[in-house]
Design a protein around this nucleic acid. Structure first.
Lengths: 228, 228
DNA sequence: TGTACATCAGTGAACGCGCGTTCACTGATGTAC
DNA sequence: TGTACATCAGTGAACGCGCGTTCACTGATGTAC
């Protein structure tokens, strides 16, 4: 049965390469299994959380021996880093999608936050891998870059809003950090079950937070030392 | 050597009870070991994090057999619940201490948030046990109560500020949740190493967040459905 | 005061478990001739 | 077209590990008589 799974993977990767007009890779599994493993891993994390998550179970659910992952990931923490990076990419995509309905910069900022909270409530365990599992000095370059792109999405919102005159002209990162903190904290507290909300009530309440943020940032006093 | 440790514990619990004018408990170890285990556990969590934390190591470091903890805690997750509860108690105490220097309600609210962030940066792993490790439906009554007391501290600040006229007269929980989210999120992002701050810069920046919060909450529009 | 007994917080041996990782291997594929 | 060979993503056995938890026990203490 394992060999059948293997064979079907071979076929599908070749079809995939053909469709995209890409040269099939020189060996039969290659990048495809890496993506499969990641996909399974993300699902497993969502299901059991990062504590109960094991490499062997990922391999098992992917239909592959427990050593196969070692061809694609250095070790367990390397796989977790990849999961974190993928989380940031999905988060960025979801924020962009949510923002696309915005009527103006202010509305887009609101929707950006909404996308952030939707992602968080939908994949709380993934969020933990992204933010809670790695010590700062051990964040992988890949995860750092993906995280920076997510932050850049927020930053662009702020800059656009400044251009529209909705926010005063100061370092946009200051505003971005304030907004990020509020939305991130709200999402984390909601996930932890420490707020008196269900999911849709949470998204309603978020509008209140966004409104408070807008007013607060508009009337921000001169700050302390500027950001590095 | 183990028996010596035991004996010395017996002596010290008796001295403790004597000093406090309390009747020594009917058996020789009792509550004292429970507190010792908790203390060691909190230290171990701070050192290695909740993932690497084990019951056996707690027992080892307390100088007691690996089964002794089972006399005081049902199982590992019961001990973790107790650690969470203790975290909320310390957080509450730290916030109260920080607030005691406040000149007025507004200043006390600022200092309350500062205490929260100081606690978080000082014991990030403990914070994770409090917020990230337990699914909402599995929060122990003890931990829930201790968490509520911490929230009440914030709520009292808000109420006092409303009485002073610094905030409009609406459901104080609305304000409390907004403020809590911002401060919690800021602390978590700082811990995760996703902000361009060191510890003292973080506390500086927090003043900016507090200022934005004050303005934002003062000019809050009418919200959606009221809180339950 | 002395003795027998109950209590129960401790002990240490044992169990079963599944993990991450290493190792030598194998066999499907692509390529050179 | 056929054959020999290199490559390398897979395999399965094995290792060492320490965990959480259960079990029957023990021995210090308090208490009843």
């Amino acid at each position: 049965m394992n060999s059948m799974t293997l064979r079907s993977n071979v076929v599908s990767v070749n079809i995939l390469c053909y469709k995209r007009g890409v040269q099939p890779k020189s060996s039969y599994h290659h990048e495809h299994l890496k993506q499969d493993l990641l996909k399974t891993a993300v699902r497993l994390i969502a299901e059991v959380g990062p504590e109960a998550f094991t490499l062997r179970e990922v391999a098992r659910r992917t239909g592959v021996s427990h050593n196969a992952p070692y061809r694609h990931f250095q070790d367990k923490s390397d796989l977790l880093s990849a999961i974190a990076a993928q989380g940031f990419e999905r988060l960025t995509a979801l924020m962009h999608r949510a923002m696309s309905d915005g009527r103006n910069a202010e509305d887009r900022l609101r929707l950006c936050g909404r996308g952030y909270v939707e992602f968080s409530l939908r994949w709380p365990q993934h969020l933990r891998v992204m933010f809670d599992l790695t010590e700062p000095e051990k964040i992988s370059p890949e995860s750092k870059r993906a995280g920076d792109r997510a932050f850049q999405t927020l930053l662009d919102c702020i800059i656009a809003m400044q251009a529209e005159g909705g926010l005063p002209p100061r370092d946009p990162r200051t505003f971005a950090i304030i907004a990020w903190s509020s939305v991130h904290g709200f999402a984390k507290l909601a996930i932890a079950g420490r707020l008196p909300f269900d999911r849709s009530q949470a998204l309603d309440f978020l509008n209140l937070i966004t409104a408070a943020l807008k007013e607060g940032m508009r009337h921000l006093p001169d700050g302390p030392a500027p950001l590095r």
